[in-house]
C-alpha cells in the first residue's frame, strides 16, 4: 500500500511537467506583448524594449521555459506582471476563500445529496422520489450564477437575512457555498439513487433479507458501502473543480478567490500567475485523485487487494 502511494506521488511529477510545458507554450505563442501590457499604452518604445530584456522575453522559447522551471524548482515563481507582488503571496492570499468555499460546497452536496438519493431509491416512484428527481434535474440544468443571483435577490435584497457580497464573516459563505453545491448535490443525489437501485437488486441483499435483517439495517449495513464508489468518484472530481476556483460564483458574490485571479491573469497575459495557478490546480487535482483512489480501497476490499 505504501509503495503504491509513493508510486502515485512520483507520477505527479510528469503530470506537472506536461502541464507547465503546455501552458507555457500556449501563452508564449499567443498574441500580445506582456511588456506593453505591464507598462500601459503611454509607454515609450525604449522602456518596452528595456523591460522585455529584463524579463528575458527575447530569449528563445526553450531557454525561457528552462529558466522558468529552474526558478520554480527553487520555489521562486516570479512576480506578477501586473501588481509586482510575488506570485506565491498572490495565490495564497486568495486560496483560503476558495478552499473554504470548496469544502463547504462539497460537504453540503454530500450531506444532502446522498440521503436524497438513498430515500429516492428505496421509495422508488413515490412522491418523494418524483419531487426529488425533478428538483435535482432543475438544479443540474440551472446555471450556478443565475441561482446565485436569484438567492441574492430573495435572501439579501428582499428579506435582508444574509449579506450579498464579501468575505467578512462566516455568514458571507452561506449563500455562495449553497450555490456552488447545488449542481454537485444534484449529481450526487442522482448517482446515489441509480447505484442504490442497482445494489438493492443484488443477490446479497436477498441473502441479508433471508437472515431476517430489517430494511434499515439492509440499507445501512449491506447496501450503502456498495453504493459509495461512484458517489466518491463524482464528489472527488467536483471537489477538484471547486478547488480550481469558480469564476462566475466568485464574480456574483464578489469573493476574492483563485478563480477570479486566474481569469484576470489570462486577460492581462500575466504569465507568472497563470503558470503558478495552473500548476497549483493540477497539484490539487492529482492529490484529490490519489485520495479518492485510496478511499476506494477503504470502501471495497477487492480494490484494496489490487494495491498490495
Amino acid at each position: 500500500m505504501l509503495k503504491y502511494i509513493l508510486k502515485r506521488f512520483l507520477m505527479i511529477i510528469p503530470v506537472m511537467l506536461g502541464i507547465t510545458l503546455l501552458i507555457f507554450t500556449i501563452m508564449s505563442f499567443s498574441s500580445g506583448d506582456p511588456a506593453r501590457i505591464i507598462l500601459g499604452d503611454g509607454a515609450s518604445e525604449d522602456d518596452i524594449l528595456q523591460l522585455r530584456d529584463e524579463l528575458g522575453l527575447d530569449d528563445p522559447f526553450f531557454v525561457r521555459y528552462f529558466n522558468y522551471m529552474k526558478n520554480a524548482l527553487r520555489g521562486d515563481f516570479g512576480r506578477s506582471y501586473k501588481t509586482n507582488t510575488p506570485v506565491f503571496e498572490e495565490i495564497f492570499s486568495r486560496f483560503p476563500v476558495t478552499l473554504i468555499l470548496a469544502i463547504l460546497g462539497i460537504l453540503i452536496a454530500i450531506f444532502f445529496g446522498v440521503p436524497i438519493g438513498i430515500i429516492s431509491a428505496i421509495k422508488r416512484y413515490s412522491v418523494f422520489d418524483n419531487i426529488g428527481m425533478l428538483f435535482t434535474l432543475l438544479l443540474t440544468a440551472m446555471p450556478g450564477f443565475w441561482l446565485g443571483l436569484i438567492l441574492m435577490l430573495f435572501l439579501s435584497v428582499k428579506l435582508d437575512v444574509l449579506p450579498a457580497t464579501g468575505v467578512g464573516s462566516w455568514v458571507c459563505y452561506i449563500m455562495p457555498s449553497f450555490t456552488i453545491s447545488a449542481r454537485t448535490m444534484a449529481v450526487i443525489a442522482r448517482m446515489t439513487r441509480t447505484t442504490m437501485l442497482e445494489v438493492i437488486e443484488q443477490d446479497y441483499i436477498r441473502t441479508a433479507r433471508a437472515k431476517g435483517a430489517t430494511e434499515y439495517r439492509i440499507i445501512v449495513k449491506h447496501a450503502l458501502k456498495n453504493t459509495l464508489i461512484p458517489v466518491v468518484t463524482v464528489a472527488g472530481m467536483n471537489f477538484g473543480q471547486l478547488l480550481g476556483g469558480t469564476v462566475l460564483i466568485e464574480a456574483v458574490f464578489a469573493m476574492p478567490g483563485v478563480g477570479t485571479l486566474l481569469v484576470n491573469a489570462i486577460r492581462t497575459k500575466d504569465l507568472p500567475i497563470i503558470m503558478a495557478d495552473t500548476m497549483f490546480i493540477a497539484l490539487c487535482f492529482s492529490i484529490i485523485n490519489l485520495a479518492v483512489d485510496l478511499l476506494y480501497s477503504f470502501i471495497d476490499p477487492r480494490i484494496k487487494s489490487q494495491y498490495q
Binding site: D203, Y204, R206, R209, A210, G212, T214, H222, D300
Partner: peptide, 29 residues
C-alpha cells in the same frame, strides 16, 4: 416474518458468487 427468517427457516442460495456481500467479511456475514 423477520423473526422466522434466518432463525426458523433459512435458505441456501443458488449462486455463491453473487450471494455474498463483497464489502463485509465472511465472519460478519
Amino acid at each position: 416474518l423477520r423473526q422466522i427468517r434466518g432463525e426458523k427457516i433459512s435458505m441456501i442460495f443458488q449462486d455463491p458468487m453473487t450471494s455474498l456481500n463483497p464489502v463485509l467479511t465472511v465472519g460478519e456475514q
